[in-house]
Design a protein around this nucleic acid. Structure first.
Lengths: 339, 339
DNA sequence: CTACGGATTGGTAACGTTCCCATGGACGTC
DNA sequence: GACGTCCATGGGAACGTTACCAATCCGTAG
């Protein structure tokens, strides 16, 4: 069992080096106006005592109030999509000497508020936010106080901040058009919660593709609120039981895609295109065609926007839309008909 | 463009409510000794001014120095395994009102030191650490200063702290025994960097299984340092070109497993068992048999240990070993022989 | 010899909060 | 009516650091 020792402060270092705390402060922070000789003595005292600057006290006192910490608020950090984004944000932060606080909201506005409040209470310099569908009025006050905010993956309703998204609607439209191009006309939509912006966009793309091919929408083929793989599997079973079942499926995220796969045969005459790429999608039978987005680019773009705001950029909020890519691997044709 | 407004402080709230800052402090932090009447006046002033307590200043002054922040240092946050762990740690922290700083080391001791130094400079109360292979002497000083440390996934050489791992050796031994049980005797080992503790353990398990079946080790069948899918694929190609190629493979992480899959036919006579489960492993052909570990349990266990330390537990360091599970799905037999 | 500029150093106050102790009033007891 | 007790409140100092300004020293110019 180790004894607890009080951490040394600048005062202790000053005493050991025979200088004033002010000089230690300058030496430790690498400011000019310290003779090489003195700097060496301070450095030796620092090493001997194992001194480490208290950055909390530092940021409390500093004029240009900077904590060099940002907050990242995502839907669910365990989701590989957000994990990749988080890593990308972390790398950008690390390059600039910033730290990252993370929090997951589970898409619950209440937890989002809690997490953001805890972050701003720690005086984060900025927030990268995957907003829930709740209101974000409370953020305006934080922004007045100097906290920069960037939204990523989805916009925040009624909040004028930099936003980075992908072209969900166009991506969905391309996916469904791909299915239409293979002659499918009964195409089912299997989506997640409709109060999530990306899902509404992807649904709009689905409708747009049908419309541009003159196919009427069939409400029986549209399923929302699929929160899990098992929900998705169940929805597929219901769809197949229809008197006029779908010949093709459009799934709006990886979880739903995987859930649906469990209900498909190998091979299966039903065609499938899903939103989100994932590892091994090319090893399935048939290889899965997907709309792919790049979470690393999303995170890096959001981080770069945020840091330019933190560096003082006060121009009008920007909106960046990254492009999705349709990756055709085979499952879009449907095993029952030749490609 | 919004004007920057100075954040209100307790002094401002005190003025607005007609009380002293001390009373505001008590009211805001829910301490006793404030009349309901006064508390209400303070609360109204808080709401009106949009006041939020500065938790950095708070933790600077507080006697029982607590920042209610922990640091999580993993190999790579983008790795789904660590992402799940991180989420689990975050949930435990959230339950207790703690925040989580995250950092990735890329398994580089230098970056590990940097990240940990940045965390402790912010006075984190504790660290959950996936240690690199570098020395950790510098951590002893931090622990003297009151920072609690728990290692997870791997132990840190020469550091007496709570550690949570899985039974890598037994898991590997079980996997290889499974292959041996199907009559395989030429079993290749495809592993990652040998300076990673888990890899050494899994290799030891591989050797133990061979030994207990009286099979001599063949160095030509052992490959280390496979850092990527393509490395793994290349190693497999080399193994298959041997005059006496292996009839079965043991791969020691999901990346290597997936890389190897790319070099296998569908089906393929070569059998395969991999360490780490992943989504869709059961949808491959043949369905993949794996040794599965539970990152959520790892994270939760480590977090619970850490928080009991933060709460003052000074007992001797504990070592918790969670169990892995062999999931038999078919690929362990080898497509060339009937199961 | 004095004045002066530059470089180095130190003293004091302050950041926003809480700890410690003192104060004052209400209330009950003898 | 005097006294002790409890509760609500406030004043001053301090946490570890840096901003600001003053002081000192050296060397050189006038």
């Amino acid at each position: 069992m180790r004894r607890l020792v009080k951490r040394p402060t600048m005062k202790d270092v000053a005493r050991a080096a025979g200088v004033s705390p002010m000089t230690v402060s300058r030496a430790v922070s690498g400011e000019p106006g310290v003779s090489p000789d003195t700097a060496a003595r301070v450095e030796q005292a620092v090493r001997q005592l194992g001194y480490q600057r208290n950055d909390n006290a530092r940021s409390l006192r500093q004029k240009n109030l900077r904590t060099s910490t940002i907050g990242l608020v995502v839907d669910d950090l365990a989701n590989p999509f957000y994990a990749l984004m988080a890593r990308s944000v972390e790398d950008e932060a690390h390059r600039r000497g910033f730290l990252v606080l993370v929090g997951s909201t589970n898409d619950e506005p209440r937890r989002e508020r809690e997490v953001i409040a805890a972050f701003t209470a720690r005086q984060v310099d900025g927030l990268i936010l995957v907003p829930t569908n709740g209101g974000h009025g409370f953020l305006k006050r934080q922004m007045d106080g100097g906290t920069c905010v960037v939204c990523v993956d989805r916009p925040a309703k009624g909040l004028a901040v930099d936003t980075v998204t992908v072209d969900n609607r166009a991506g969905a439209e391309r996916a469904v058009s791909h299915l239409l191009g293979h002659g499918h006309t009964r195409i089912a939509y299997l989506g997640d919660r409709f109060d999530i912006w990306t899902q509404r966009e992807r649904h709009a793309g689905y409708l747009a593709a049908l419309a541009s091919h003159g196919i009427p929408e069939d409400p029986a083929l549209v399923r929302h609120e699929l929160r899990s793989q098992s929900h998705a599997a169940a929805a597929l079973a219901e769809l197949r039981a229809l008197s006029a079942p779908p010949t093709a499926l459009f799934t709006t995220n990886d979880l739903i895609t995987i859930g649906v796969m469990d209900g498909l045969g190998q091979p299966d005459p039903v065609a499938l295109v899903g939103f989100d790429d994932f590892p091994l999608a090319d090893r399935l039978s048939p290889p899965l065609s997907v709309v792919s987005q790049d979470p690393v680019a999303l995170g890096a773009t959001a981080a770069n926007l945020l840091f330019s705001r933190i560096d003082g950029d006060r121009s009008a909020p920007r909106s960046v839309v990254l492009l999705t890519r349709l990756i055709v691997r085979g499952s879009g044709a449907g095993g029952g008909r030749p490609r």
